[in-house]
């Protein structure tokens, strides 16, 4: 049966906006972020400004592997995000129109394999990228701590707080919440177990962990977006410092 004009489905989203707004915004946001990242990879060679380090360039240690500095780091979080259950929804909707919005007719492509074949079968490896992303996260926390240790003129260093330190702290916190609210982590930490009670009726540790992660998981999509923008913003801030467009603000 052909779809007539009045049967365009899901004509309004929850917010009342037209159904196509959300997928296009996704494409716009992710597209711009992608272009920005490529620009970093090919045209920028450092993310360091004094004790501030852009998350795109951490860690700086290369263990002898010589690739473009940003690329050395970028692949891990990129794959973590690309295989993230939340981003997958946005990507399939925005870039592949599979579907664009609920009930919106798709072209009746004969070949739809979902995540059963290459390339999307790779999304099953999400937990592996989560492990790697966690390693990167450790470096980012080290960077965040370093951002509070300022060099003193004439040698030595001192504790201090600058705008950059706060930005980096917020950024790494958001990235941590994004990582800890992950569906794969929710499963690994306790969701995979069948029973949540000990023999004496008390809750298992895994239940408690699962329960906590489940609550965070409800906000996974939110963490996904804000942490992406915070990474972006952190780099922009540090890059503006590097280019001398703005000057560092130091609170004490």
């Amino acid at each position: 049966m052909a779809q007539s004009a009045e049967t365009i489905h899901g004509s309004k989203s929850k917010s009342g906006a037209a159904w196509w707004v959300e997928p296009y915004l996704t494409v716009l946001a992710l597209g711009l972020f992608g272009v920005y990242s490529l620009w970093l990879v090919f045209f920028q060679h450092t993310g360091q400004f004094q004790n501030y380090l852009s998350p795109f360039f951490s860690p700086t240690e290369d263990w002898g592997i010589k690739v473009l500095p940003a690329l050395w780091v970028l692949w891990a979080p990129l794959l973590f995000r690309a295989t993230c259950y939340y981003y997958r929804k946005e990507i399939y909707r925005g870039f592949f129109h599979d579907p664009m919005a609920c009930g919106v007719p798709e072209s009746r492509r004969k070949f739809y394999f979902g995540e059963t074949r290459f390339p999307f079968i790779w999304t099953n490896l999400h937990r592996w990228f989560w492990y790697i992303a966690l390693v990167v996260l450790v470096f980012l926390w080290i960077d965040a701590v370093k951002a509070f240790i300022f060099p003193v003129a004439g040698g030595g260093s001192t504790f201090g707080v600058g705008l950059g330190s706060l930005i980096m702290l917020v950024n790494v916190s958001l990235l941590t919440m994004y990582s800890l609210s992950c569906h794969a982590f929710r499963h690994l930490v306790g969701g995979g177990s069948q029973k949540f009670s000990c023999a004496d009726g008390s809750p298992t540790t895994r239940y408690k962990l699962w329960n906590t992660v489940s609550r965070w998981n409800e906000k996974h999509g939110l963490f996904a977006w804000v942490s992406m923008f915070s990474v972006w913003f952190t780099d922009v801030y540090i890059r503006l410092l590097i280019y001398g467009v703005i000057h560092p603000v130091r609170f004490f």
């Binding site: 899901g10 259950y85 997958r88 929804k89 399939y92 909707r93 599979d98 579907p99 609920c102 009930g103 739809y112 394999f113 979902g114 995540e115 059963t116 999307f120 079968i121 569906h183 998981n217 409800e218």
Partner: peptide, 24 residues
């Protein structure tokens, strides 16, 4: 059963009149 065909675009969850969080 082909669970791999689901690409978690969540429309099932949106329409569920019982509010079951089908996808997550």
């Amino acid at each position: 059963a082909g669970i791999g065909y689901c690409n978690i675009t969540k429309c099932c969850t949106v329409v569920c009149p019982q509010g079951i969080n089908i996808t997550d």
